[in-house]
Write a protein that binds this DNA or RNA. Structure first.
Lengths: 163, 163
DNA sequence: CCTACCGATCGGTAGG
DNA sequence: CCTACCGATCGGTAGG
């Protein structure tokens, strides 16, 4: 909070004329990000019927969020653990719901014969973990364009790396 | 440190008869894990010549380390940021060296015609990020066997999810 | 918006 | 191994 105050050019106690608490700041960031992902999934599911198409759209959205809204996504990915009740439970329920919808999406793709019969939970974990790993990218950025990064990662997660 | 002391059944100051500092504990965990990965890559490269075979072995090792040595790998993955100099620089050099060797491995596979011509840095990032993401698994463990988890994730990262 | 200050917590030391 | 305690840091409040 003292760092934040310094960045804003005020003393730390002055922050509390604008915000209620540090916790409150954390809550608004976490739920803002969680909501962005939920809303995107809604629209993706409305504008496409093919589960592979929806899956690809979702992966691309995750990648773009990591690249364009890095700071907030980072907080939502790491600091949610310090959310206070009832926000913590709420956040976890939302996140589990989101993951479950992705699992169902993959199950649908499997039943349609479009996706391999891998365990759908493992598939969702692999995908979410990979896109989230873009946070390490930020640290030692190679000079690779966002477009190559996005396209190659999507290709890898959908079709693999073996020729 | 106070939690650690409690777990050991002593008072916090007593810890310092056994260790030098909290930092020292962090160092030994981080370098122990970094070394395990380096040693494994060495042996994998000696016992196989095919780059796809080596890559698969390495991915499997990462997954097993995440499942079997979770606590220490977690610390090495997250807390290395708090390493003090010169350990911090040292650790980063080791890690970059390791990642670079994986990049070279993939480049070799591409030149051999075994792997797709994706950007090799993106491929390494995708793989490392995905296996590392197993830390979320620990949190909300589904009842899936380690073997299915390992096999399906390897399949996904090598051959993709699309049929 | 500020100054002054609080209670809790943390890694660690002194001294026995 | 312990008791006693330190200086730094943190989120936050009182009072103006």
């Amino acid at each position: 909070m003292r760092e934040l105050a310094e960045a804003l050019g005020v003393e730390a106690p002055s922050l509390y004329n604008h915000i209620g608490s540090k916790s409150e700041l954390l809550q608004s960031i976490c739920f803002k990000i969680a909501n962005a992902f939920l809303v995107y999934l809604d629209t993706a599911e409305k504008t496409a019927t093919n589960s592979v198409t929806i899956l690809e759209k979702v992966i691309r959205f995750h990648i773009r969020m990591m690249l364009n809204e890095f700071d907030e996504v980072y907080v939502a990915n790491h600091e949610w653990k310090h959310l206070k009740e009832p926000y913590l439970s709420n956040f976890l329920i939302q996140r589990r719901g989101y993951e479950k919808r992705l699992v169902v999406l993959i199950e649908t793709g499997i039943r349609a014969g479009a996706l391999k019969k891998n365990n759908p939970y493992v598939a969702v974990l692999t995908i979410l973990a990979a896109v989230r790993g873009l946070e390490f990218w930020q640290q030692h950025k190679k000079n690779i364009s966002s477009q190559v990064l996005e396209d190659d990662m999507v290709e890898h997660l959908l079709h693999g790396i073996i020729k």
